[in-house]
């Protein structure tokens, strides 16, 4: 017994090491992306406010570039509003259908934390459930698609970035929808991969990839990226397509959360398994 106690005393640090590594293993491997989001920023006001302070400082230093992007974005929206489909309302934008029913509204938000180095990247925005943000809402930047809301707290939301291996988007190329998935393969924060497009399809480098009709999270026509490289193996009937993302995730600052105002009504019309 004494020898056992002496052994424990001499190796207490090793026993503690093993126990704590088991705790870490549980945290690393048992939490999925959704639970990880809950573990971190959106649920933690201290770390979120530290990151928010840093973002405020870096924002100030980056004002010139951001102003340019806002100018460009406002100009684009002004052009589109002449068709009567997009109205500027206080700080939210509303897109209406042909019968003038509101379809999508957009809540502006600021990115306070963002990663691009991991396989499963997320970013945190400064709007939460108090601002009407809910899980599974689409998020876009002034350049294009940015992600999908994973989790919200009262003031913050964690968003699954397009640069996340769990992200799967059905793309539309030159206005034609392809029921194959656009994925991020953890190669570069600027590029994604699209497989399963038949070589017979008329696609060339530079073609625009946008969102299509098949999603309730995004309006049709939000830019996702452009085809930057088309290649294929000799014995394959499919293209291997490299897509340059429209959004520059390394300088992501301002985003819009898309609220589908008819989502419940539209979901009720879908078959039960969709």
């Amino acid at each position: 017994m004494q020898r056992l106690l002496a052994f424990i005393e001499n190796n207490l640090h090793l026993i503690l090491f093993v126990v704590l590594q088991i705790v870490c293993g549980f945290l690393v491997f048992s939490l999925n992306a959704f639970q990880q989001a809950a573990f971190t920023h959106s649920a933690n006001s201290v770390t979120a406010s530290v990151n928010k302070t840093v973002t405020n400082i870096t924002d100030y230093l980056d004002l010139r570039q951001q102003n340019k992007e806002l100018q460009y974005q406002l100009a684009t929206q002004f052009n589109q509003s002449s068709s009567g489909s997009l109205l500027y309302l206080k700080d939210t934008f509303t897109i209406k259908d042909s019968t003038r029913r509101p379809l999508f509204s957009m809540v502006p938000a600021q990115v306070i934390y963002n990663t691009v180095n991991r396989a499963d990247n997320v970013f945190i925005i400064n709007k939460g459930s108090l601002d009407g943000i809910k899980k599974n809402m689409g998020v876009i930047s002034s350049q294009g698609l940015a992600g999908i809301v994973l989790k919200t707290s009262s003031k913050y939301s964690t968003v699954m970035s397009l640069l996340n291996t769990n992200m799967k988007i059905i793309p539309s190329i030159n206005g034609k929808e392809y029921f194959t998935e656009l994925i991020w393969d953890n190669e570069s924060p600027y590029f994604m991969k699209l497989q399963g497009v038949n070589k017979l399809e008329k696609i060339i480098e530079g073609d625009l990839i946008t969102t299509g009709h098949s999603s309730l999270l995004f309006p049709k026509g939000v830019p996702i990226g452009t085809v930057s490289k088309l290649s294929s193996k000799p014995n394959s009937q499919y293209f291997q397509t490299r897509i340059k993302t429209a959004t520059d995730f390394r300088s992501l600052e301002y985003v819009y959360v898309i609220v589908n105002q008819q989502k419940e009504a539209l979901e009720a019309m879908l078959p039960a398994n969709e």
Partner: peptide, 30 residues
């Protein structure tokens, strides 16, 4: 050594909270 292990785990966990990586920095610090 025991105190050093506890400091490492605590510091790693704090780092994890800031970068949204539950357990990774804590494990690496250990």
């Amino acid at each position: 050594k025991t105190v050093q292990i506890i400091i490492a785990f605590s510091l790693g966990l704090v780092a994890d909270f800031f970068v949204a990586t539950p357990g990774i920095h804590a494990s690496a610090c250990l």
